[in-house]
Amino acid sequence: MVRFLIRRVLLGIFVLWVVSMAVFYLFFGLNKSGPNAVASRICGKQCTTQQINAVKTRLHLNAPLPKQYWYFLFGYPGKDDPNGLPRNHGILHGDLGYSYVNQQSVNTTIKQSFPITLSLAVGSAVLWLAMGLASGILSAIRPRSLLDRTFTFLALFFYSMPTFVLGVLLLLLLFYQLTVHGVSWFPAGGYVNLTDNPAEWARHMLLPWFTLAAVTSAAYTRLTRGSMLDVLGEDYIRTARAKGLTERRVVFRHGLRAALTPIVTQFGIDLGTLLGGAIITEQVFNLPGLGFQAVRAITSNDLPIIIGVVVIATTAIVLANLVIDILYAVLDPRVRLH
């Protein structure tokens, strides 16, 4: 178990390293026209040559690429310029740098955005697990029934539904149309802090939660149904029934537990991905979470924010994968880690 964990952690670090190189290369290395092009991209369209030169000096863009990457990891040399941007102390020192656009620390931006993404991801995860598991189990215990067919169709319908389409249609129906008729149950979007006003927080999160949960739970309905049907056909389920256990106990204790393995995998991947920013949902509902910040940074060439979000998002996925592997062994006694 310990050896397995060490190997997985090393693999996770390796992934993070590759991703950090990829992002860095994408923005600093791929531009063939050299440091000038990179600097003017960072500086913006209306920069003077002087400003571009200042950017080049500050970010050491004339240094060889591996050296620049070193700075990027361990911090830029020299002292802080009291008038200009603070010096980046390097990702490995926990400093994600400063925004090129508003000079704010990326760490601060991420600290402010993460709770929003977290609210969205956790809230919808509860919803989609409940919807997906319930419909999947009900379908599996009565396969081919009307209920099963209904759930199956709904699952396929929402599975085919692009997230942003569901989001904008819900907004059109429940915000625009209701507002035109004088009912304002749902806001157009935006975020209210949980600590400021819990009721408003929930009211603002309701549509985003539902949007994300509906499109995600479809996969869980299909997965749960398939997995449960497989497991319910196993010999030990027949044994459990034969020794007189109640059907409820057979389904939940013996069936669901073994059927959960693929669901846990999927859940880990989904939650891990979302914790790095539910880009589309945040965009549609105007929630300034990590994904929203990333999209805004991408359109305004704010590299430190993009890199910061990418690093956080990858870490979330890597951690989620690690947790899944550990949960495997807990859930299914047949699995032995080595």
Binding site: V23, F27, I279, G291, V295, T314, I317
Partner: peptide
Amino acid sequence: SIPFLLFAISL
């Protein structure tokens, strides 16, 4: 393990 959409929009 790469955040697909984020990388895709960056690219």
